[in-house]
Design a protein around this nucleic acid. Structure first.
Lengths: 177, 177
DNA sequence: CCCGTATCGTTATAACATAACACTCCTTGC
DNA sequence: GCAAGGAGTGTTATGTTATAACGATACGGG
């Protein structure tokens, strides 16, 4: 019923998987795209386009313009390397590159991290419900907000977890509301 | 499995249900809010905040400022009278006012309409999956994009349905991409 | 060499959303 | 009556997210 796959989803693995996929698909992983790849790798939480923009500008030492970032994001999105999180206006690395595409996105409201959970049962239920109502889905988005295991744990109530700890860039960008 | 409820979801019904709910809850349905209510009633598809803004300004004969609209939307959202559709940055009347709150939102990419489908099975599956992975959901959002019954029907391929036909305001606002 | 395609730079602007403060009106308690 | 306070709205300014449009460069094939 739960997350069937057992991959580890760490940033380094993701980055190398993207490299591989680009080679296989003949997609160009240019220097710019590689730099954005690194920025994603360095973040524990999803990143807003403008957070990427700032980080990129900082690392380049010169001001980068928004379209540059959005084009790079488009590339990653088209290839399925990252997902857009609609409810945050933010972007996160896809944690299930090789296999199944897109399941449930669980967003922790305490630490800002997001986790991708594959589950065929949910997708089947949605497809069935939609079909029963005459609707033909093309894409489906499921985003849940709540508390992740670490932040909801018994000891978590005391010392609240904060996002900053994976590497350099770390703040969840779209911290609206 | 499919949509269990049999209410009709037409704009007039929705408006009067909102009226009733305000009376019962002691919420103030002020003139401004009533005007926005009418604007929603007149639209077949979800509306963006700025679409409402323009329509409101047009009907008032004077320029309205964004905060006025957003405050009104906040009121409707807090009372559960409308939903925000994250993937469109748009707002739509809640089709299940009395009972169950929020299920699956089906958005037709051809005619721009959205339809709300209640289904406990989907929500149960999501809750189970999340729990299995240690996540505690607080709110869940499911948005599916595809083709509605009318636009996917056998005769639909020929003469494509367009949004404009329910009443005055009708264009889907967030027609991004 | 020329042309098409992909990438990236650059400027400007569109689209979506909120902060902060002022004013009215109405209610409540005295 | 009238001060105090809250809800609603008006108004100005600004913040945040995303795209349009055009130019420049680089690279590969005919």
């Amino acid at each position: 019923m739960a997350n069937a796959c057992s991959c580890d989803h760490d940033p380094a693995t993701w980055a190398s998987q993207v490299e591989d996929a680009c080679l296989r698909q003949g997609a160009q992983l240019t220097p710019l795209r590689r730099r954005v790849l690194k920025i994603f790798s360095g973040s524990a939480a999803p990143l807003g386009a403008y957070a990427i923009l700032e980080e990129l500008s900082r690392r380049e030492g010169k001001q980068i313009a928004p379209p540059t970032v959005y084009r790079t994001l488009d590339f990653f999105l088209e290839h399925g390397f990252v997902h857009k999180i609609e409810s945050l206006n933010a972007y996160a690395p896809c944690e299930h590159l090789g296999h199944a595409h897109h399941g449930l996105l669980a967003i922790c409201e305490a630490c800002g991290r997001s986790e991708e959970i594959e589950d065929a049962a949910v997708m089947r239920a949605i497809a069935a419900t939609a079909a029963g109502s005459g609707f033909t889905p093309r894409t489906v988005m499921v985003e849940a907000k709540g508390l992740c295991r670490r932040c909801a744990g018994p000891e978590a109530a005391a010392h609240h977890h904060k996002p900053g700890d994976a590497s350099s860039t770390s703040a969840p960008s779209g911290s609206r509301k």
